[in-house]
Design a protein around this nucleic acid. Structure first.
Lengths: 336, 336
DNA sequence: CTGAAAGCGCTTACAG
DNA sequence: CTGAAAGCGCTTACAG
């Protein structure tokens, strides 16, 4: 332990001004003389003064911290989202407190409670479930909140989401054009809005296009790779297996690819594969993967912009970003 | 805006006790009567009381927040590390403030300064560079700090690192056994301890094994995929190109794979490829990738354990985890 | 086991 | 432009 940390009083004393004046200088208040400014800045630098954020926040009811609640940092989509949001927030002077819900309601609530106790200036959340008491507490307190990627039914906060319907319809039409009529769908968890919306979009598009609506062609995964493997296994074991696979996110697609590779099924030839979410690596595979892409960077930036607007007292409109099919070799091969 | 937030005074008033007693109950102080406990807990729940973490921290000089400084969340190695550390910290009652240095010294310093101002209880850092004034400030203040994955020369704090020499030697011997004598090495930035140590290990192992020591066979990347692509391109353009490639981290390996695929070079047949860092996906490629694996989970958990020890006043020994070659198809093919 | 009082380190009306 | 004073919401010796 070293001696007590330097405070604004020490800075003020060294500069020969009052703590009030030192505070004004250090927070950029223009009501300060040039001489005060110079002396305070010099003293602060001399003493290596780092203002106590707790004391500042307690008094000013502003923390310059935002809470970012994600479901799984190891999912590249969320890692990219975290990166984009964090960089955008930093540029605006906010640091990011990361909450990793780990696709788990209890951990989600724990982080939301932490965000409340930490008195974050705002929250960006990719929520799951129906909306818990912790989420309700957050909103009841009027903590500025925006949803990103996912939403909660019946909770009306601004959001940045992807219109998955468009990309999924393109994917279905593309597969139909290649002669596929039995398409296996590896769905996300129905406790998430994206899991529900993508399944709904797929079912609607499949029906419109005249694909098989055999319910056995849908497998319910959990957005993690192991469930993608299990899903592919189950779908391939059907009496009449699908000739194409569509996975509702990238980790499940990876899991499905693993199953296919281990079974010696050639991707793009024996089985078409399409993944929701574009991630760098998919285009680098020996058989590059056809994907439904969404703009993660834009989502991250937009969510920060919306949140700052809400913090500033605005009531911004929600933003819906487009999705789009990018055809690569995994679905382009000749068939039947 | 809703009305003022409820404070411990409100809870105390509703429970019919003093704020001091309410505080004792809520912080688990055993010097409380059963009746007080029941009434305070009921009142807190009734009012949906969330204690102000700032006020608590200001008074008690404890925040229950740790700062985690990483170089790039989008690098799967660091995403896994973040996940492991965050989960381990959460289990011990700490939340994690994530700083993403973005392989950039300025951002690293900005987050370190933020950690100081936020008065985090401790810092886990994967640092780069020589050690900046911000890092020095952190240590001068006695903020408990441990390094993970990377270290800074001359700064003596407990660390959790990987012994890369062992895995790299195994890789070199394995390649030699396959008949390779010209191995291209895509190095990490020499501003990081891992970048330096892995290059040193490779050079030593290559010399011992009698591989070519042609300096043109080393390309200096920056741990990001684009530099892996550029590195592969430059190495393949040599008058006498290598027959095997070793990349010092996974994003650079991905970049190199992209170059090879786009040039029509068959991995594992025309060119052997080995990556440092094992990540799930590498084993799922059509040609599964040979890797030098390290245990990210263990690193994350160990770094939290060490940090808690330091916070508790201990002086723990640094931990060095092993690395190990895992041979897969990308380096197992027949040659020449 | 309990309460009154002081204080953590800032910021901000208020008065000049 | 400046300073003295109050107060943000907790916790913690202190005295009982």
């Amino acid at each position: 332990m070293t001696s007590a940390v330097t405070t604004i009083k020490d800075v003020a004393a060294l500069a020969g001004v009052s703590p009030a004046t030192a505070s004004r200088v250090l927070s950029g208040n223009p009501a300060t003389s040039k001489e005060s400014r110079e002396r305070v800045v010099a003293a602060a630098s001399e003493l290596d003064f780092h203002p106590n954020a707790q004391a500042r926040a307690l008094r000013s009811t502003r923390t310059n911290v935002i809470g970012l609640l994600l479901s799984d940092v190891r999912n590249p989509f969320f890692a990219d989202l975290a990166h984009a949001a964090e960089q955008a927030a930093l540029a605006e002077g906010f640091v990011t407190l990361l909450g990793n819900a780990n696709e788990n309601m209890e951990q989600q609530d724990r982080y939301l409670d932490t965000f409340i106790s930490q008195r974050v200036d705002g929250v960006i959340a990719a929520p799951q479930g129906e909306g818990s008491s912790s989420l309700q507490s957050l909103l009841d307190r009027g903590v500025p909140t925006v949803f990103v990627d996912r939403t909660v039914d019946g909770i009306n906060v601004p959001s940045v989401t992807t219109d998955s319907a468009r990309g999924i319809r393109q994917a279905v039409e593309h597969l139909l054009g290649q002669g596929h009529t039995r398409v296996g769908y590896i769905a996300g968890p129905q406790t998430t809005s994206t899991g529900r919306e993508r399944l709904r979009s797929f079912s609607a598009a499949a029906q419109e296009a005249g694909l098989s609506t055999d319910p056995d062609l849908t497998y319910f995964g959990d957005f993690r790779s192991a469930s993608g493997s299990a899903g592919a296994q189950q779908l391939l074991a059907l009496p009449e297996p699908p000739t194409a696979l569509l996975a509702a996110d990238s980790p499940m697609a990876v899991g499905a690819l693993a199953t296919l590779n281990s079974m010696g099924i050639r991707i793009g030839q024996d089985m078409a594969v399409i993944a929701f979410d574009d991630i760098e690596w998919f285009s680098l595979l020996e058989t590059p993967l056809t994907v439904i892409s969404n703009d993660v960077e834009a989502m991250g930036r937009a969510s920060v912009r919306l949140l700052l607007d809400v913090i500033g007292g605005g009531r911004p409109e929600s933003i819906v970003l487009p999705s789009e099919l990018i055809v690569r070799a995994s679905s382009a091969g000749p068939h039947h």
